[in-house]
Design a protein around this nucleic acid. Structure first.
Lengths: 191, 191
DNA sequence: TGTACATCAGTGAACGCGCGTTCACTGATGTAC
DNA sequence: TGTACATCAGTGAACGCGCGTTCACTGATGTAC
Protein backbone atom coordinates (compact mmCIF):
# COMPACT_ATOMS: atom_id res chain seq x y z
CA UNK A 1 0.00 0.00 0.00
CA UNK A 2 1.20 3.46 -0.87
CA UNK A 3 2.42 5.51 2.03
CA UNK A 4 0.77 8.82 2.57
CA UNK A 5 2.99 11.45 0.98
CA UNK A 6 4.78 13.84 3.21
CA UNK A 7 2.33 16.59 2.51
CA UNK A 8 -1.16 15.42 3.10
CA UNK A 9 -2.76 17.71 0.58
CA UNK A 10 -6.03 18.32 2.33
CA UNK A 11 -5.36 17.90 5.99
CA UNK A 12 -7.82 20.55 7.09
CA UNK A 13 -10.72 18.69 5.51
CA UNK A 14 -9.42 15.34 6.67
CA UNK A 15 -9.37 16.63 10.24
CA UNK A 16 -12.90 17.96 9.94
CA UNK A 17 -14.04 14.60 8.59
CA UNK A 18 -12.34 12.72 11.41
CA UNK A 19 -13.91 15.04 13.96
CA UNK A 20 -17.29 14.32 12.37
CA UNK A 21 -16.71 10.59 12.70
CA UNK A 22 -15.92 10.93 16.39
CA UNK A 23 -18.98 13.13 16.84
CA UNK A 24 -21.26 10.43 15.55
CA UNK A 25 -19.53 7.50 17.23
CA UNK A 26 -19.17 9.13 20.62
CA UNK A 27 -20.21 12.71 21.23
CA UNK A 28 -19.07 16.32 21.29
CA UNK A 29 -17.15 15.83 24.52
CA UNK A 30 -15.04 13.11 22.99
CA UNK A 31 -13.74 15.13 20.10
CA UNK A 32 -10.14 15.79 21.01
CA UNK A 33 -7.48 17.34 18.90
CA UNK A 34 -5.11 14.45 19.57
CA UNK A 35 -7.68 11.79 18.86
CA UNK A 36 -8.75 13.55 15.68
CA UNK A 37 -5.17 13.75 14.42
CA UNK A 38 -4.61 10.11 15.37
CA UNK A 39 -7.48 9.06 13.14
CA UNK A 40 -6.05 10.86 10.19
CA UNK A 41 -2.71 9.24 10.89
CA UNK A 42 -0.92 12.45 11.55
CA UNK A 43 0.85 13.87 14.57
CA UNK A 44 -1.23 15.98 16.90
CA UNK A 45 0.86 19.03 16.23
CA UNK A 46 0.20 18.88 12.51
CA UNK A 47 -3.29 20.16 13.20
CA UNK A 48 -1.85 23.47 14.29
CA UNK A 49 -0.79 24.21 10.73
CA UNK A 50 -4.49 24.45 9.89
CA UNK A 51 -6.32 25.43 13.04
CA UNK A 52 -5.21 27.79 15.75
CA UNK A 53 -6.68 25.64 18.49
CA UNK A 54 -9.03 22.80 19.19
CA UNK A 55 -11.85 25.30 19.53
CA UNK A 56 -11.10 26.70 16.09
CA UNK A 57 -11.41 23.23 14.62
CA UNK A 58 -14.75 22.66 16.34
CA UNK A 59 -16.05 26.02 15.23
CA UNK A 60 -15.07 25.17 11.69
CA UNK A 61 -16.91 21.84 11.82
CA UNK A 62 -19.99 23.49 13.31
CA UNK A 63 -19.96 26.19 10.65
CA UNK A 64 -19.92 23.57 7.92
CA UNK A 65 -22.78 21.88 9.69
CA UNK A 66 -24.96 24.97 9.66
CA UNK A 67 -24.24 25.46 5.98
CA UNK A 68 -25.20 21.88 5.21
CA UNK A 69 -28.37 22.29 7.23
CA UNK A 70 -29.30 25.47 5.41
CA UNK A 71 -28.67 23.80 2.08
CA UNK A 72 -30.90 20.86 2.98
CA UNK A 73 -33.62 23.25 4.07
CA UNK A 74 -33.34 25.34 0.93
CA UNK A 75 -34.34 22.34 -1.11
CA UNK A 76 -37.61 22.14 0.79
CA UNK A 77 -38.27 25.85 0.72
CA UNK A 78 -39.51 25.79 -2.85
CA UNK A 79 -42.10 23.10 -2.36
CA UNK A 80 -45.80 23.66 -2.14
CA UNK A 81 -45.92 23.19 1.64
CA UNK A 82 -42.64 24.88 2.46
CA UNK A 83 -42.89 24.98 6.25
CA UNK A 84 -43.51 21.28 6.41
CA UNK A 85 -40.79 20.45 3.92
CA UNK A 86 -38.26 22.70 5.59
CA UNK A 87 -39.17 21.49 9.05
CA UNK A 88 -38.86 17.88 7.98
CA UNK A 89 -35.46 18.63 6.47
CA UNK A 90 -34.39 20.12 9.79
CA UNK A 91 -35.49 17.12 11.81
CA UNK A 92 -34.07 14.75 9.23
CA UNK A 93 -30.71 16.47 9.43
CA UNK A 94 -30.68 16.14 13.22
CA UNK A 95 -31.50 12.44 13.00
CA UNK A 96 -28.94 11.70 10.30
CA UNK A 97 -26.10 13.67 11.84
CA UNK A 98 -26.93 13.73 15.49
CA UNK A 99 -23.36 14.14 16.67
CA UNK A 100 -22.87 17.13 14.44
CA UNK A 101 -26.24 18.55 15.46
CA UNK A 102 -25.29 18.32 19.10
CA UNK A 103 -22.00 20.04 18.44
CA UNK A 104 -23.69 22.82 16.50
CA UNK A 105 -26.00 23.65 19.38
CA UNK A 106 -23.49 22.95 22.12
CA UNK A 107 -21.05 25.18 23.97
CA UNK A 108 -19.24 26.20 20.79
CA UNK A 109 -22.32 28.15 19.77
CA UNK A 110 -21.92 30.35 22.84
CA UNK A 111 -18.53 31.36 21.43
CA UNK A 112 -19.96 32.57 18.17
CA UNK A 113 -19.08 36.17 18.93
CA UNK A 114 -15.53 34.99 18.25
CA UNK A 115 -16.42 33.14 15.06
CA UNK A 116 -18.09 35.40 12.54
CA UNK A 117 -18.64 32.66 9.97
CA UNK A 118 -20.27 30.40 12.51
CA UNK A 119 -22.55 33.19 13.58
CA UNK A 120 -23.49 33.98 10.02
CA UNK A 121 -24.16 30.35 9.10
CA UNK A 122 -26.39 29.89 12.15
CA UNK A 123 -28.29 33.06 11.35
CA UNK A 124 -28.92 31.90 7.81
CA UNK A 125 -30.83 28.91 9.17
CA UNK A 126 -33.09 31.16 11.17
CA UNK A 127 -33.64 33.56 8.29
CA UNK A 128 -34.76 30.66 6.14
CA UNK A 129 -37.21 29.43 8.74
CA UNK A 130 -38.59 32.88 9.25
CA UNK A 131 -39.12 33.26 5.54
CA UNK A 132 -41.20 30.11 5.16
CA UNK A 133 -43.12 30.83 8.37
CA UNK A 134 -44.02 34.38 7.62
CA UNK A 135 -45.13 33.46 4.13
CA UNK A 136 -47.97 31.35 5.47
CA UNK A 137 -48.86 33.73 8.26
CA UNK A 138 -51.97 35.63 7.42
CA UNK A 139 -51.18 38.43 9.76
CA UNK A 140 -47.41 38.87 9.72
CA UNK A 141 -46.17 40.37 12.94
CA UNK A 142 -43.16 42.48 13.61
CA UNK A 143 -41.79 40.36 16.41
CA UNK A 144 -41.04 37.40 14.15
CA UNK A 145 -42.93 35.19 16.50
CA UNK A 146 -44.07 32.95 13.65
CA UNK A 147 -40.48 32.25 12.67
CA UNK A 148 -39.40 31.78 16.24
CA UNK A 149 -42.27 29.41 16.88
CA UNK A 150 -41.35 27.38 13.81
CA UNK A 151 -37.72 27.25 14.82
CA UNK A 152 -38.56 26.35 18.38
CA UNK A 153 -40.86 23.57 17.27
CA UNK A 154 -38.54 21.85 14.82
CA UNK A 155 -35.53 22.37 17.03
CA UNK A 156 -37.27 20.98 20.07
CA UNK A 157 -38.64 18.00 18.19
CA UNK A 158 -35.17 17.26 16.86
CA UNK A 159 -33.72 17.35 20.35
CA UNK A 160 -36.41 15.10 21.79
CA UNK A 161 -35.90 12.57 19.03
CA UNK A 162 -32.14 12.37 19.17
CA UNK A 163 -32.21 12.22 22.95
CA UNK A 164 -34.58 9.29 22.65
CA UNK A 165 -37.30 11.00 24.68
CA UNK A 166 -39.73 10.30 21.88
CA UNK A 167 -39.18 7.03 20.05
CA UNK A 168 -37.27 7.67 16.90
CA UNK A 169 -39.47 5.26 14.99
CA UNK A 170 -42.28 7.76 15.09
CA UNK A 171 -40.07 10.73 14.37
CA UNK A 172 -40.87 11.31 10.73
CA UNK A 173 -44.54 10.44 10.92
CA UNK A 174 -45.19 12.59 13.93
CA UNK A 175 -43.16 15.49 12.67
CA UNK A 176 -45.08 15.32 9.45
CA UNK A 177 -48.40 15.31 11.25
CA UNK A 178 -47.42 18.21 13.46
CA UNK A 179 -46.12 20.31 10.61
CA UNK A 180 -49.13 19.95 8.39
CA UNK A 181 -49.86 23.39 7.15
CA UNK A 182 -53.03 24.75 8.59
CA UNK A 183 -54.69 28.12 8.48
CA UNK A 184 -53.27 30.30 11.17
CA UNK A 185 -55.92 31.73 13.48
CA UNK A 186 -55.61 35.36 14.42
CA UNK A 187 -53.38 36.04 17.35
CA UNK A 188 -55.21 37.04 20.46
CA UNK A 189 -54.27 39.93 22.61
CA UNK A 190 -51.92 38.71 25.32
CA UNK A 191 -51.21 39.82 28.83
CA UNK B 1 -15.61 30.97 63.02
CA UNK B 2 -16.67 27.47 63.97
CA UNK B 3 -14.88 24.69 62.17
CA UNK B 4 -17.00 22.29 60.25
CA UNK B 5 -17.53 19.25 62.43
CA UNK B 6 -15.90 16.01 61.45
CA UNK B 7 -19.11 14.64 60.08
CA UNK B 8 -20.65 17.03 57.65
CA UNK B 9 -24.20 15.95 58.28
CA UNK B 10 -25.60 16.51 54.85
CA UNK B 11 -22.75 16.08 52.46
CA UNK B 12 -24.81 14.52 49.70
CA UNK B 13 -27.00 17.59 49.45
CA UNK B 14 -24.04 19.93 49.85
CA UNK B 15 -22.35 18.22 46.90
CA UNK B 16 -25.47 18.50 44.80
CA UNK B 17 -25.72 22.19 45.63
CA UNK B 18 -22.08 22.79 44.76
CA UNK B 19 -22.52 20.98 41.47
CA UNK B 20 -25.50 23.22 40.74
CA UNK B 21 -23.40 26.29 41.40
CA UNK B 22 -20.73 25.13 38.96
CA UNK B 23 -23.42 24.32 36.40
CA UNK B 24 -24.67 27.87 36.42
CA UNK B 25 -21.29 29.57 36.61
CA UNK B 26 -19.62 27.45 33.96
CA UNK B 27 -21.40 24.55 32.31
CA UNK B 28 -22.04 20.83 32.44
CA UNK B 29 -18.57 20.01 31.17
CA UNK B 30 -16.97 21.84 34.04
CA UNK B 31 -18.68 19.93 36.81
CA UNK B 32 -15.93 17.74 38.21
CA UNK B 33 -16.04 15.57 41.23
CA UNK B 34 -12.86 17.12 42.59
CA UNK B 35 -13.98 20.67 41.95
CA UNK B 36 -17.36 19.99 43.51
CA UNK B 37 -15.77 18.53 46.65
CA UNK B 38 -13.35 21.44 46.78
CA UNK B 39 -16.25 23.88 46.92
CA UNK B 40 -17.81 22.10 49.83
CA UNK B 41 -14.44 22.13 51.57
CA UNK B 42 -14.12 18.41 51.69
CA UNK B 43 -11.63 15.95 50.22
CA UNK B 44 -12.45 14.56 46.81
CA UNK B 45 -12.69 11.05 48.16
CA UNK B 46 -15.36 11.99 50.65
CA UNK B 47 -17.83 12.15 47.80
CA UNK B 48 -17.50 8.41 47.33
CA UNK B 49 -19.26 7.84 50.65
CA UNK B 50 -22.40 9.24 49.02
CA UNK B 51 -22.11 8.63 45.30
CA UNK B 52 -20.64 5.66 43.51
CA UNK B 53 -19.11 7.79 40.81
CA UNK B 54 -19.14 11.21 39.25
CA UNK B 55 -21.86 10.06 36.89
CA UNK B 56 -24.02 8.98 39.80
CA UNK B 57 -23.73 12.46 41.27
CA UNK B 58 -24.71 14.08 37.98
CA UNK B 59 -27.63 11.72 37.55
CA UNK B 60 -28.79 12.63 41.02
CA UNK B 61 -28.62 16.35 40.29
CA UNK B 62 -30.45 15.89 37.00
CA UNK B 63 -33.17 13.84 38.69
CA UNK B 64 -33.74 16.59 41.22
CA UNK B 65 -33.91 19.02 38.33
CA UNK B 66 -36.68 17.11 36.58
CA UNK B 67 -38.65 16.93 39.80
CA UNK B 68 -38.30 20.66 40.33
CA UNK B 69 -39.39 21.27 36.76
CA UNK B 70 -42.44 19.06 37.13
CA UNK B 71 -43.36 20.80 40.35
CA UNK B 72 -43.13 24.22 38.71
CA UNK B 73 -45.28 23.02 35.84
CA UNK B 74 -47.87 21.48 38.16
CA UNK B 75 -48.58 24.90 39.56
CA UNK B 76 -49.55 26.13 36.12
CA UNK B 77 -51.54 23.05 35.21
CA UNK B 78 -54.54 24.13 37.22
CA UNK B 79 -54.91 27.55 35.65
CA UNK B 80 -57.52 28.51 33.12
CA UNK B 81 -55.11 28.40 30.20
CA UNK B 82 -53.04 25.44 31.31
CA UNK B 83 -50.94 24.89 28.21
CA UNK B 84 -49.74 28.46 28.25
CA UNK B 85 -49.11 28.47 31.99
CA UNK B 86 -47.28 25.15 31.91
CA UNK B 87 -45.29 26.11 28.85
CA UNK B 88 -44.28 29.40 30.40
CA UNK B 89 -43.19 27.57 33.54
CA UNK B 90 -41.04 25.30 31.40
CA UNK B 91 -39.33 28.16 29.61
CA UNK B 92 -39.00 30.10 32.83
CA UNK B 93 -37.29 27.15 34.47
CA UNK B 94 -34.81 26.88 31.61
CA UNK B 95 -34.00 30.58 31.82
CA UNK B 96 -33.63 30.62 35.59
CA UNK B 97 -31.55 27.47 35.86
CA UNK B 98 -29.90 27.20 32.51
CA UNK B 99 -26.93 25.21 33.71
CA UNK B 100 -29.17 22.65 35.30
CA UNK B 101 -31.41 22.58 32.25
CA UNK B 102 -28.43 21.87 30.02
CA UNK B 103 -27.30 19.07 32.30
CA UNK B 104 -30.77 17.55 32.36
CA UNK B 105 -30.89 17.30 28.58
CA UNK B 106 -27.22 16.51 28.10
CA UNK B 107 -25.34 13.24 27.83
CA UNK B 108 -26.48 12.05 31.26
CA UNK B 109 -29.98 11.70 29.86
CA UNK B 110 -28.72 9.09 27.41
CA UNK B 111 -27.69 7.02 30.43
CA UNK B 112 -31.14 6.99 31.91
CA UNK B 113 -31.53 3.26 31.33
CA UNK B 114 -29.06 2.98 34.22
CA UNK B 115 -30.87 5.49 36.41
CA UNK B 116 -34.46 4.50 37.01
CA UNK B 117 -35.30 7.57 39.08
CA UNK B 118 -33.94 9.88 36.44
CA UNK B 119 -35.96 8.13 33.79
CA UNK B 120 -39.09 8.33 35.86
CA UNK B 121 -38.64 12.01 36.70
CA UNK B 122 -38.12 12.88 33.04
CA UNK B 123 -41.17 10.92 32.02
CA UNK B 124 -43.30 12.75 34.55
CA UNK B 125 -42.56 16.02 32.78
CA UNK B 126 -43.78 14.61 29.50
CA UNK B 127 -46.89 13.10 31.04
CA UNK B 128 -47.78 16.47 32.44
CA UNK B 129 -47.36 18.19 29.11
CA UNK B 130 -49.38 15.57 27.37
CA UNK B 131 -52.18 16.01 29.85
CA UNK B 132 -52.53 19.73 29.32
CA UNK B 133 -52.15 19.39 25.56
CA UNK B 134 -54.68 16.69 25.05
CA UNK B 135 -57.19 18.48 27.22
CA UNK B 136 -57.42 21.33 24.74
CA UNK B 137 -57.29 19.17 21.68
CA UNK B 138 -60.69 18.86 20.13
CA UNK B 139 -59.84 15.66 18.39
CA UNK B 140 -57.50 13.74 20.68
CA UNK B 141 -55.32 11.37 18.71
CA UNK B 142 -53.73 8.18 19.74
CA UNK B 143 -50.21 9.08 18.72
CA UNK B 144 -49.88 11.77 21.37
CA UNK B 145 -48.81 14.19 18.71
CA UNK B 146 -50.44 17.08 20.56
CA UNK B 147 -48.31 16.40 23.63
CA UNK B 148 -45.19 15.87 21.60
CA UNK B 149 -45.80 19.07 19.68
CA UNK B 150 -46.22 20.99 22.93
CA UNK B 151 -43.11 19.47 24.40
CA UNK B 152 -41.12 20.12 21.25
CA UNK B 153 -42.24 23.71 21.11
CA UNK B 154 -41.47 24.69 24.69
CA UNK B 155 -38.28 22.67 24.74
CA UNK B 156 -37.03 24.18 21.51
CA UNK B 157 -37.92 27.70 22.59
CA UNK B 158 -36.08 27.15 25.86
CA UNK B 159 -32.98 25.98 24.01
CA UNK B 160 -33.00 28.87 21.59
CA UNK B 161 -33.34 31.37 24.42
CA UNK B 162 -30.62 30.00 26.65
CA UNK B 163 -28.28 29.61 23.71
CA UNK B 164 -28.88 33.25 22.91
CA UNK B 165 -30.19 32.50 19.42
CA UNK B 166 -33.25 34.54 20.20
CA UNK B 167 -32.67 37.54 22.46
CA UNK B 168 -33.59 36.65 25.98
CA UNK B 169 -35.27 40.01 26.46
CA UNK B 170 -38.12 38.88 24.28
CA UNK B 171 -38.28 35.41 25.75
CA UNK B 172 -41.28 35.75 27.99
CA UNK B 173 -43.30 37.99 25.74
CA UNK B 174 -42.77 35.88 22.67
CA UNK B 175 -43.35 32.62 24.48
CA UNK B 176 -46.55 34.01 25.82
CA UNK B 177 -47.69 35.11 22.37
CA UNK B 178 -46.85 31.77 20.84
CA UNK B 179 -48.56 29.78 23.52
CA UNK B 180 -51.81 31.66 23.46
CA UNK B 181 -54.47 29.06 23.44
CA UNK B 182 -56.27 28.91 20.16
CA UNK B 183 -58.84 26.59 18.67
CA UNK B 184 -57.07 23.62 17.12
CA UNK B 185 -58.05 23.09 13.50
CA UNK B 186 -58.74 19.58 12.38
CA UNK B 187 -55.72 17.61 11.42
CA UNK B 188 -55.44 17.00 7.74
CA UNK B 189 -54.64 13.69 6.21
CA UNK B 190 -50.90 13.46 5.71
CA UNK B 191 -48.65 11.68 3.27
C1' DT C 1 17.30 21.18 -18.19
C1' DG C 2 19.91 21.33 -13.86
C1' DT C 3 20.84 23.23 -9.54
C1' DA C 4 20.47 26.07 -5.35
C1' DC C 5 17.43 27.45 -2.20
C1' DA C 6 13.35 29.22 0.41
C1' DT C 7 9.09 27.64 2.10
C1' DC C 8 6.34 25.57 5.26
C1' DA C 9 3.63 21.11 6.31
C1' DG C 10 4.94 17.80 8.77
C1' DT C 11 7.52 15.33 13.27
C1' DG C 12 8.39 13.76 18.13
C1' DA C 13 9.68 14.91 22.65
C1' DA C 14 8.29 17.43 26.36
C1' DC C 15 5.52 20.67 29.42
C1' DG C 16 2.10 21.10 33.04
C1' DC C 17 -2.49 20.14 34.17
C1' DG C 18 -6.64 18.36 36.30
C1' DC C 19 -9.14 14.56 36.20
C1' DG C 20 -11.59 10.07 38.35
C1' DT C 21 -10.62 6.62 41.24
C1' DT C 22 -8.05 3.36 44.75
C1' DC C 23 -5.98 2.59 48.96
C1' DA C 24 -4.85 2.20 53.74
C1' DC C 25 -5.74 5.14 57.33
C1' DT C 26 -7.94 7.98 61.30
C1' DG C 27 -10.78 9.52 64.56
C1' DA C 28 -15.50 11.47 66.00
C1' DT C 29 -19.87 9.60 67.00
C1' DG C 30 -23.42 6.67 68.82
C1' DT C 31 -24.53 2.44 71.18
C1' DA C 32 -24.34 -1.72 74.15
C1' DC C 33 -23.45 -3.16 78.46
C1' DT D 1 -23.43 7.19 84.55
C1' DG D 2 -19.07 5.40 82.76
C1' DT D 3 -16.55 2.69 79.69
C1' DA D 4 -15.42 -0.28 75.75
C1' DC D 5 -16.10 -0.69 71.25
C1' DA D 6 -18.01 -0.95 66.48
C1' DT D 7 -19.24 1.98 62.84
C1' DC D 8 -18.33 4.53 59.00
C1' DA D 9 -17.73 9.50 57.25
C1' DG D 10 -13.98 11.56 56.63
C1' DT D 11 -8.47 12.13 55.08
C1' DG D 12 -4.28 12.51 52.08
C1' DA D 13 -1.11 10.28 49.19
C1' DA D 14 -0.80 8.02 45.07
C1' DC D 15 -2.12 5.78 40.50
C1' DG D 16 -2.38 6.26 35.55
C1' DC D 17 -4.44 8.82 32.03
C1' DG D 18 -5.24 11.77 28.09
C1' DC D 19 -5.47 16.22 27.20
C1' DG D 20 -3.99 20.95 24.65
C1' DT D 21 -0.17 23.24 23.51
C1' DT D 22 5.03 24.64 22.82
C1' DC D 23 9.31 23.85 20.94
C1' DA D 24 13.16 23.06 17.97
C1' DC D 25 13.54 20.21 14.20
C1' DT D 26 13.36 17.94 9.37
C1' DG D 27 12.79 17.17 4.86
C1' DA D 28 9.69 17.09 0.54
C1' DT D 29 8.11 20.36 -2.62
C1' DG D 30 8.03 24.14 -5.86
C1' DT D 31 10.39 28.04 -7.78
C1' DA D 32 14.03 31.27 -9.42
C1' DC D 33 17.83 31.49 -12.01
Amino acid sequence: MPRRPYRHGDLANALRAAALAILDEAGPNDVGLRETARRVGVSATAAYRHFGSKEDLLASVATEGFRELAAAMETGAIESDPLRAVGLAYVEFALQKRGLFRLMFGPILLQRAKYAELDEAARAVFVLLRRVSVSIDEQPREDNSAGIAAWGLVHGLSSLFIDGLVPETYARGITNAILVQRPRPEYQATA
